[in-house]
Amino acid sequence: MTHEPTQEPAYEPSPLADVDCRPSGDRWQLIFVRDLKHPPEKVWAALTTPENLEKWAPYTADRDLGETGEATLTMIDGDTQMDMKAEVLLAEPGKVLEYSMGTDLLRWQLEPSSAGTQLTLLHTVQDKDWVPKVAAGWHMCLDVAEKLLDGTPIAPIRGADAVNYGWLDLNSAYADRLSIEDTGLPGHLSE
């Protein structure tokens, strides 16, 4: 039985994740921790396989990310798609996935927990004011991923469309939690 993605009932963001922000050289790193009620192997498949990524992530991948080496991630915003060079730097199945995405660096750490998996994302960005924006985006994406893992998928929430599902409120809440000024929408979306 195939489950078709839906937005019914309406998407409601989950409670805020545990977050922190720290300097990383001349850059900034978001630490985003979330418990998922699925085992690490299942979460790993959602993080690495193109057929799963296209159902929840802000991008698709041209190959399985579970092996080191170059890859292309295609960012999706409505009808607009943009290819970004990526390189998987570390892939320990069910444990750690680290890759570059353009100028960003993402490190996904999976730890077995009583709930299923404690997922820790370390996302390094250039500018501190992007940290709450990134937290809000990953919050929504991981809500969608969890529904996919639950077997009750909803359509991906990506790009400018995220504003229609509470991104502004999440961005403000994460900015407050992280004590970072809320600068609102990214410049390319506020024009």
Rank of each mutant, 00 (worst) to 15 (best):
L122G: 04
H123V: 04
I154E: 12
L142C: 08
V125M: 12
A136V: 10
D143P: 11
V131Y: 06
L119A: 11
C141R: 10
V134A: 13
P153M: 03
A155D: 15
D129H: 08
D150S: 15
V144Y: 00
V131H: 05
K128L: 11
A136H: 10
E146L: 02
L149Q: 03
L122V: 10
Q126N: 13
L121M: 12
W130L: 14
G137P: 04
D150F: 03
V134Y: 03
G137K: 10
L119D: 08
T124V: 14
W138P: 05
C141P: 03
L149A: 10
D127I: 07
K133F: 00
I154T: 13
T120Q: 12
L119T: 12
G137V: 10
H139T: 10
P153Q: 02
A136Q: 06
K133I: 05
T120A: 06
L121A: 02
V125E: 03
M140N: 01
V131R: 05
K147I: 01
W130T: 04
V125P: 06
P153L: 00
W138I: 08
M140H: 09
T152D: 14
P132Y: 02
T152K: 14
D150W: 02
L149V: 11
D127F: 12
V144P: 04
K128D: 01
G137I: 08
L119M: 13
